[in-house]
Write a protein that binds this DNA or RNA. Sequence first.
RNA 1: UGCCUGAUGGUGUAAUGGUAGCACAGGUGACUUUGACUCACCUAGUCAUGGUUCGAAUCCAUGUCGGGCAGCCA
Length: 598
Amino acid sequence: MSAEPTAPAPAPSDFIRDIVVGHVAEQRYAKIVTRFPPEPNGYLHIGHAKSICLNFGIAREHQGQCNLRFDDTNPVKEDVEYVDSITRDVRWLIAGWADQCLGFKPKGAHPGRTTVNGQPDYYLGPVAPDANSEAFFASDYFDQLYEYAVELIKRGKAYVCDLSAEDTEKYRGSPDAPGKDSPFRHRSVAENLDLFTRMKAGEFPDGARSLRSKIDMASPNMWLRDPLLYRIRHVAHHHAGDKWCIYPLYDYAHCLSDYLEGITHSICTLEFVDHRPLYDWVLENLGLPRALPHQYEFAKLNLAYTLVSKRKLLTLVTEKVVSGWDDPRMPTLSGLRRRGIPASALRTFVTGVGVTKFDSLTEAAVFENAVRGELNTAAQRRLAVLKPLKLVLTNLAAGETVECTATNNPQDENPTTRPIALTREVFIETDDFAEVPPPKYFRLKPGGEVRLKYACIIKCDELVKDAAGAITEIRCTAQLDTRHGQPNADKKVKGTIHWVSATNCLDAEVRLYDRLFTVAEPAAEEDFLKVVNPKSLEVVTAKLEASLATAKLDDRYQFERLGYFALDPKDSNVGSPLAGGPRLVFNRTISLKDTWAK
RNA sequence: UGCCUGAUGGUGUAAUGGUAGCACAGGUGACUUUGACUCACCUAGUCAUGGUUCGAAUCCAUGUCGGGCAGCCA
């Protein structure tokens, strides 16, 4: 329908993309393959969105692939609950944008044995997501990882160490002082092989021994001081079952997982810069036949007024500061989704902040701007009154209705309309009337005139107050000839306010959210619970125009002059045949920008 | 007092030896049946000191300040 498609956004550019573009130019790889590798031990948040968009974005820009891989090497922290939520969140975020790049693997598949240049090899390539496929799991590589560890031992590059965790730490030294060799560092290959086999067989208790790389205990890089490759943990694994009692550590498993999947660019955050030499060490000391993946690091996202620490987010949930991981105030993808934030707005935002190695703090306004921008074009305009004040149009008869026409979305090229009926009694926003108006007040005041949006100009004639002096009703005259198409339609007044017919409207619960914290950097606080915004949620019973009775879960609405709203997918009861009709619960995704100084 | 890494308007980010640009925020105005949107204009920056060069945000040196690293977490 739309004649001119919006100009495609310019392809983002950053130092990592520049590297990839260079590799593509020199045809270093047959295909660009990235990966998004969360550990299934918590919910994805807005910080992950940056990584997801970077990895999928790069794959997308080069007709490549981005594997979703669960980095599940620590069974004591992980659970399938997280596997499910993470999968759902990733698919939601990339839907309609990079679905074609999402790499899954056949259900239950493990790396296959192949031969490359006469050398044995393992590889597990991607397939498109469907009913018979699933995400990749590092735990599917435990067999290969074990085999590689044996190879490292045979090459004299790894040894079984009997030091306790405490002694291992002591031997490691400190950043400004070299460590010293473990007394077990020079065990024979045969003894190491025997001990490692018995570790796997379950002969030793947790922590009794470990498999360590043999690198350099005096290295200025702490991560090269014979880091552990395997630890003993007699626990079942959520994905691998009870087959193993030794589990590989991140630095050992990650680079090899990347290799097994044919990852070309392994992108992670800055705290892993120090690990990169280890990443390369493992790969280079195994004599692998295919091209090796390489690690690149970027600065994680820091957003003002938000917290992304898993531990602290969990505290918010357990202390019931919020209703759950998907509370619309949470920075989790499930929370943002429930709040009504479109995935496209999240993508626009995270790609907009760019990718650098600078530890920055992004202002909340940047995020809010991206959300409003997206919603402005997508949202259907509706009239709703959050804090109702009754207004009587004294020159309209009690049963009389005046048909008016409202525009659904003025941003559309050919906006559609809907009818709304003006009646004698309407509700206006309490804030839109002031008995004693502040300077520059455009709205209704005693004796003043204002336009009821889509209807006509009204004049305030008198106030009705209760015994306590509170205003209970405003009585006005409707100037019906100022309606659209009427002789005085062009009459100008400074203010236009929204309204809802009092006799033909819907009640709805509306949840108004504000930022969860009162300070820009809650993470820097000694006690972040002390800076929780006590007014982060306000619940009101609003009056909605009748057409909202058929509101849909997936639709986005702008309640005019108020903000963008979406049905709460959990608590709304849409289209239910219940006698009382649907239960409507709206979340305010974000308010409209308000440049009128308060 | 070790190693790694970084520093460009208020914020975020471009410019890879040749005109310091963009976005957000802020300000002014236009338009407006949303104090929204849109549009126009304005404000505001290369951490410091030296050096190389015709020319430096960019290269070199030194310094300052920030972030990361001593899990059998990822």
